[in-house]
């Protein structure tokens, strides 16, 4: 596994949990979850090459567009719905977040932290940030909704979503000092609001 958010996600998933991975790419997270936790799951992916890679990886994959919502899935059909490094590409973010916690009891969301100091510095110096976490130029990026750790916390609060756990990372190491400045990737474990 190369992406730093995958290790904590695998750690947070309970053995045997039913998982749904939105924007699952080549299915490597689901493959890892099956091997490490015997957690059965489905991936959702729109890209043809990703879908094919999932099938090669023997991962259940559904070729669907997340922007259409999660109407294919019943309430409470998963223990955890994962949105790994995909949040920033979603247009209807609020709708999808609500849908994730309708379909799953919990959700895990990871995203590149736009508040990371290098990103701030690049903007300060006059350019849009380009980095290993944000490898696109402004004109060819699939990212439409970038945010900082603090933005996401405000957003969760506004939607009434509970933050169960938060981990901010840089190069696979947890950052506890000034995380919104020194961490490049954030991972949140989220739950429904208390009734």
């Amino acid at each position: 596994m190369t992406r730093p958010d995958l290790e904590p996600i695998v750690r947070w998933i309970s053995p045997g949990a039913r998982v749904l991975d939105l924007g699952c790419g080549d299915g490597s997270l689901l493959k890892e979850l099956w091997q490490a936790k015997r957690a059965p799951g489905y991936g959702v992916e729109i890209d043809d090459a990703g879908v094919l890679a999932c099938l090669r990886n023997d991962v259940n994959v559904l070729q669907m567009d997340l922007e259409g919502g999660l109407s294919a899935f019943r309430d409470d059909s998963f223990d955890c719905v994962i949105l790994s490094e995909t949040l920033q590409t979603i247009r209807r973010t609020e709708q999808l977040m609500r849908e994730m916690l309708r379909v799953g009891r919990e959700a895990i969301v990871s995203f590149p932290n736009f508040g990371y100091w290098r990103a701030r510095l690049q903007v300060f110096l006059g350019n849009m940030p380009v980095s290993p976490e944000l490898p696109y130029q402004w004109y060819d990026t699939p990212n439409v909704h970038l945010c900082t750790v603090r933005d996401f916390e405000d957003f969760s609060r506004r939607l009434g979503i509970r933050v169960l756990e938060r981990l901010v990372l840089h190069e696979a190491r947890a950052v506890s000092l000034l995380p919104n400045l020194l961490g490049s990737v954030a991972v949140f474990r989220l739950g429904r609001a208390r009734a």
Partner: peptide, 16 residues
């Protein structure tokens, strides 16, 4: 696909 998911079956779906 939806019915298979509701019935908790193993399914993959391709929309070409």
């Amino acid at each position: 696909v939806r019915a298979l998911l509701d019935a908790r079956k193993i399914v993959s779906y391709l929309e070409i």
